[in-house]
């Protein structure tokens, strides 16, 4: 049983959703990014999504684009990601979130080996689909890492089935058609997508894209196994610093325990 499996089992026993928080390594500095990840955990985040900065983050909105640009200009390297994973995974399960080219360039087998050695549990690959992921699935399998592919509202049931059979750990359900960023409302299509995903797989289904406050977390927690928050943490760290990250984590953590009935 992987650390992620244990986490989701524990959350289920507590009748709540898991809270997963994202920050990219090196924003605004390496030290502050790791401090932000640790503050998230103190505030109640159950697992950390450690972002690998990339020059061309096609699935990210302006908040994360600017953050990874700052990280790269500050000299953030793929090797630093493993340092961050090593520190953060002492406190909570860690998945990395990385676009494919830096992983391919590093070497899928070497990336998996170093991620495992650093204590990582898996990886979310937003621009990699199972059909193109042969080398990564093999590398992750060899190191007992959980590969996490995405489903989207536009995915056919057949494709959701492929993702469900390929993934381990959980399925990342993109709540809406669009890029990352905070939104006034989480798309109504998210609940339907979670239901369609559950019909194809027994893996936990976590919803990302658009959640930024406790009420939204509660709304999503009513139907999903996990709530993923990224841009809101980046913005908190950028605007107000590490303490604001901890405060936001507390609010979201309260939200995933509230499980408000969906409207």
């Amino acid at each position: 049983m992987s650390r992620l499996d244990e986490l989701f089992a524990r959350c289920r026993a507590q009748n709540r959703a898991a809270l997963i928080g994202y920050l990219p390594v090196g924003f605004p500095t390496y030290e502050l990014s790791v401090a932000g990840m640790l503050a998230m955990i103190e505030g109640g985040v159950d697992a950390v999504e450690v972002g690998v900065p990339y020059t061309d983050p096609g699935m990210d909105g302006p908040v994360i684009q600017v953050a990874v640009d700052v990280a790269l200009r500050g000299g953030s390297r793929v090797a630093h990601v493993f340092d961050a994973v090593r520190t953060v995974s002492e406190k909570a399960p860690v998945v990395v979130m990385g676009y494919w080219n830096p992983v391919e360039r590093y070497g899928p087998a070497r990336f998996a080996k170093d991620l495992r050695a650093a204590g990582g549990s898996g990886a979310i690959t937003p621009d990699l689909i199972p059909e193109e992921a042969g080398p990564w699935i093999e590398a992750a399998g060899a190191e007992d890492l959980d590969p996490v592919f995405l489903v989207a509202p536009s995915s056919t049931d057949e494709r959701i089935g492929v993702v469900g059979r390929t993934n381990r750990g959980f399925v990342y359900a993109a709540s809406t058609m669009g890029v990352t960023g905070t939104r006034a409302t989480v798309g109504s299509r998210a609940e339907e997508l979670v239901a369609r995903t559950r019909a194809q797989t027994d893996l936990p289904v976590c919803v990302g894209l658009g959640v930024s406050n406790g009420d939204q977390a509660a709304e999503v927690a009513a139907y999903a196994d996990g709530v993923i928050v990224g841009s809101a943490f980046v913005r908190a760290l950028q605007d107000e610093g590490v303490d604001a990250v901890r405060t936001l984590a507390r609010e979201l953590s309260e939200g995933v325990r509230r499980r408000a009935p969906s409207s």
């Binding site: 096609g58 699935m59 494919w100 937003p126 621009d127 990699l128 689909i129 059909e131 193109e132 592919f149 995405l150 489903v151 989207a152 509202p153 536009s154 995915s155 056919t156 494709r159 993702v163 993109a174 058609m177 669009g178």
Partner: peptide, 12 residues
């Protein structure tokens, strides 16, 4: 070649 894009685009 291939398709290295977010899943959301595959249907299109």
């Amino acid at each position: 070649g291939g398709r290295f894009v977010p899943e959301a685009l595959i249907a299109a």
